[in-house]
Amino acid sequence: MKNQFIAGLKAGLSIAIGYFPIALTFGLLAKTTGLSLMEATAMSIFVYAGAAQYISLNLISFGVDPVTIVINTFIVNIRHFLMTASLNEKMHRAPKWVKAIYSFGITDESFSVLATGKEEKIPTAYAFGVTIIAYGSWVIFTAAGHVVGANLPEFLQVAMSIALYAMFIGLLVPAMKGNRKVVMLAALAAVIHCIIYIGELLSTGWAILVSTLGSAILIEIIYARRSKNATVMFKEKEES
């Protein structure tokens, strides 16, 4: 169990490093938005959701009322329903309260690291390892960003804004290799999201939810039909 925990810490290290620039930038932006060190760090401690936190800063700076900000946060995070329902299929069984604890650490990134792993079933200790190191990085570097972020050279601050997305690509590409279904899932979701974006049909939170679910369902139907056809063809061959 201890080994699984350490293996989890190692797998989570890439997230922790990926969070470094993102959290640092968040801390910096929080400061320019007018949050104190304690307020900014507390948001990372208690909310712990990168995209939602960035959006909330934006809304705070526009003077949007707190209730709207909370509703917005919920909409942005609805996608986690899908992720944790999906992850549940892969996790080792554990007491409810244990799962309730590590579920706090499920983010886009920790979910991706856990769900795209090679293992058939994920041990609970491994999940704790992945989530704890990522969470620690997020909280510590939020505070660091608030304190020293503004001293970083401008070109580096700009470059670091790519970190989150580069990380997603780093997680996706290895799974795409030799797996056509994965390529189609990601590509279709991306296309749907782009269409929604260009048509200004939905807000970002809903758009991610709809494009993810749309792609996952459509591709599943295509593959289910295809494997059915394959068995039919196979049977016809046998009969003739």
């Binding site: 795409m176 999201h193 494009s211 993810t212 792609s215 996952a216």
Partner: peptide, 22 residues
């Protein structure tokens, strides 16, 4: 079919998170 769709989610969500935001 539900667990099939759920197992597709990780890859679909990555596509939707990357594009067009990046």
């Amino acid at each position: 079919i539900v667990s099939g769709v759920l197992s597709n989610i990780p890859y679909a969500v990555l596509g939707a998170l990357i594009f067009p935001a990046i």
